[in-house]
Deep mutational scan, measured.
Amino acid sequence: MDSLVVLVLCLSCLLLLSLWRQSSGRGKLPPGPTPLPVIGNILQIGIKDISKSLTNLSKVYGPVFTLYFGLKPIVVLHGYEAVKEALIDLGEEFSGRGIFPLAERANRGFGIVFSNGKKWKEIRRFSLMTLRNFGMGKRSIEDRVQEEARCLVEELRKTKASPCDPTFILGCAPCNVICSIIFHKRFDYKDQQFLNLMEKLNENIKILSSPWIQICNNFSPIIDYFPGTHNKLLKNVAFMKSYILEKVKEHQESMDMNNPQDFIDCFLMKMEKEKHNQPSEFTIESLENTAVDLFGAGTETTSTTLRYALLLLLKHPEVTAKVQEEIERVIGRNRSPCMQDRSHMPYTDAVVHEVQRYIDLLPTSLPHAVTCDIKFRNYLIPKGTTILISLTSVLHDNKEFPNPEMFDPHHFLDEGGNFKKSKYFMPFSAGKRICVGEALAGMELFLFLTSILQNFNLKSLVDPKNLDTTPVVNGFASVPPFYQLCFIPV
């Protein structure tokens, strides 16, 4: 009986604490739906499609509103004006990374994606500088992407125009580009180590996009005490870190300090320079996690976009025909596509942009946080508050993009057929937390897609009208449904 009384008292205290925290903070924060004790607004949000729920709530509470995930307040920004004001106009104040408990377990605050403060700034600055020195957006990395595009075309030829699921092959190409940047090595598509790495990356994007992960991140005790797919994700990350550590040891034994070959060499050189400046942010643990982040951000996002792009091109054969006509006119058949071609191919450029806009790969991006107490639109948001960005509300804005739910390359073309930029184009987020590999991803999408369409016609196994382009999961990332196609050599 005594234990029951204690339990009831504990629960009562928890409920009172929950109510007090919510009521004391709500006077400062933007308005929002009334949260339930302990669980907050979790029942009012469709976990399978958070973005749709945010759109519905914005119609009631406006472009800036507050939700509670458990006891934790989260300020939501919906629509271009609110997102721009926060991420661009007040970029420094909104540059923090929001709480992501599962990532905390995986990387302990290291790396480039989930770190904060001085650690994040130094690692991000170093990573950007190193990638630029190796030619991100310049010639040397373009050579690597072109080489991988040629290998991709050869792998597709091996399908002999038979029906195939493109998931694996389209994942190999961007993964190999990242391998060449980090390890100075590309792998054969049949290499077992490479296959294991690909498998872990593919599993992780599916797990991260599941409703279960949303629950884990908002009720963090689940991570330590409950079984579930989150444990598989943590094991996959541990596998990748151990693999990278092996490569780091190989580099330490063979590195030429006067001739760095890749990202690992550059990081080890930085560690050597910083060894007298303790404590340094440049450690082996930081290198492991930064490399894992580059793999995660640079492989599955690009391969998922490529997979979605081919599905949309199957669905819209008239678009595919126009792209192939432009390829034939500008590039021809006797040389590989290059980035200089893009400025002469406005329709193809528009298609690449429209694919990214339409699929809305990361509907709410990753959570941000404010780095200080900030007054925002007459609300006071306390330091450390998590900020949720609705990228969907920007990419699918119906004023900027008429009929935003329709796939239409003319969203990025003017009346004369010239490519038209849009400030609403934010597939990689915006501001200080914009994806480090934005330029690389854009290069890969253009070169891989043009190389495929230069060499193959795409054949659907069903009537294009019957192809479903609805994402199968739409949590962290929008993942396309399973499909097969035939690559018919031109």
Rank of each mutant, 00 (worst) to 15 (best):
I207R: 06
I327G: 01
G437V: 12
N217A: 14
L195V: 14
S254Q: 13
K48L: 10
M406N: 14
I181Q: 03
E148W: 00
P221G: 08
L15I: 10
F407V: 01
E92S: 09
E155T: 06
F482E: 15
K270L: 08
I327L: 07
G98E: 11
P37E: 00
T55S: 12
D191F: 01
D188G: 11
L467G: 01
L87K: 04
G417R: 05
Q146W: 04
A106E: 08
S220G: 14
V76I: 12
M406V: 13
N455R: 06
R108A: 14
H316S: 06
E250S: 11
A309S: 14
T167E: 07
Y424V: 07
H368D: 03
I223S: 09
V145G: 00
G442V: 06
S209D: 15
L311S: 01
G296M: 15
S53D: 13
Q484S: 07
V237E: 07
E203M: 08
Y358G: 01
V145R: 00
K119D: 10
L312Q: 03
R433D: 10
Q193G: 09
E444C: 00
M257G: 12
G384V: 00
C266K: 12
V292N: 05
D256R: 10
V248E: 01
R433H: 06
V60E: 12
L87M: 09
K241W: 03
L449E: 00
D165V: 01
V177N: 00
K423V: 12
E281W: 07
E142G: 03
L195S: 09
I389P: 08
R377I: 02
N204D: 06
S254T: 14
G228Q: 06
A441M: 05
K48V: 14
V76C: 11
V355Q: 01
C338H: 05
Y424F: 08
G40F: 00
D224F: 07
H353A: 11
S58A: 13
F428W: 07
Y379G: 02
L245G: 15
S422F: 04
F487Q: 01
T290E: 03
G98M: 11
K423I: 13
Y379C: 07
I488D: 11
P35R: 14
F407G: 00
K249V: 12
R108H: 13
K59M: 09
H368E: 04
Q252D: 05
I45D: 01
R335S: 06
R307V: 06
F376A: 03
Q44P: 05
Y189L: 05
T348R: 00
K421G: 14
R144P: 03
F168C: 07
Y358T: 06
R357V: 00
E104C: 07
P35T: 07
T304Y: 14
Y347A: 01
N176L: 00
P337Y: 01
P63V: 02
Q324L: 04
K138F: 10
H276R: 12
P317V: 06
K270A: 05
I123Q: 11
N378H: 08
V75M: 04
I327Q: 01
K190T: 10
N378D: 09
N398R: 11
T299P: 02
L314R: 00
I207K: 05
R342A: 09
N259I: 05
K160N: 13
L447F: 07
T470V: 09
S422I: 05
K121L: 11
E300S: 14
P404E: 08
P363S: 08
I123G: 05
K200E: 02
D463Q: 14
K383G: 06
P35W: 02
L391R: 14
I327D: 01
L14W: 12
I374D: 00
E154H: 10
V462D: 10
S209R: 11
A441S: 06
D349V: 13
L311I: 06
K48E: 06
K138D: 08
R335T: 05
I359C: 15
T34V: 12
E122V: 13
F376V: 08
P73V: 04
P166Q: 02
L314W: 01
N41Y: 01
S254K: 12
D49R: 05
N398Q: 15
D256N: 14
Y243F: 15
N398E: 13
I215F: 14
I88P: 03
E328N: 15
K423G: 07
F295R: 00
E300C: 13
L447E: 02
L395V: 07
I359S: 13
F194Y: 11
S280T: 14
R333L: 14
W120V: 06
I264E: 03
L36C: 15
L71D: 15
F376M: 11
F282Y: 12
A161T: 10
E203I: 06
I99E: 14
K84L: 07
R333N: 11
K185T: 08
T469P: 09
T364S: 11
S286Y: 07
Q214T: 13
I215L: 10
Y379D: 03
S12Q: 04
R21V: 10
S140P: 09
Y189T: 03
S23G: 13
A106C: 13
P464S: 06
H396R: 14
L7C: 06
P63G: 11
K420G: 02
L485Y: 01
T386L: 09
S286G: 09
K48R: 14
G171S: 13
F446T: 00
S95E: 15
E81R: 12
F126H: 13
R307K: 11
I50W: 07
F134S: 12
K399S: 15
I359A: 13
F456C: 00
A321Q: 06
D265V: 02
K59D: 07
H396P: 07
G171K: 12
C151F: 09
V490N: 12
N218G: 15
I123K: 05
I434H: 09
P480R: 03
V237M: 15
L453D: 00
E300G: 12
R108I: 11
P37M: 03
E328A: 12
F487Y: 02
I213F: 15
A161G: 15
S286R: 07
K121A: 10
Y308C: 06
Q192N: 06
K315T: 06
F295D: 00
G117W: 05
G109V: 05
Y68I: 02
M240Y: 05
R377P: 00
L15K: 03
P402V: 11
T392E: 07
Q192R: 14
N107A: 08
I112G: 09
E85D: 12
C175V: 10
K241N: 12
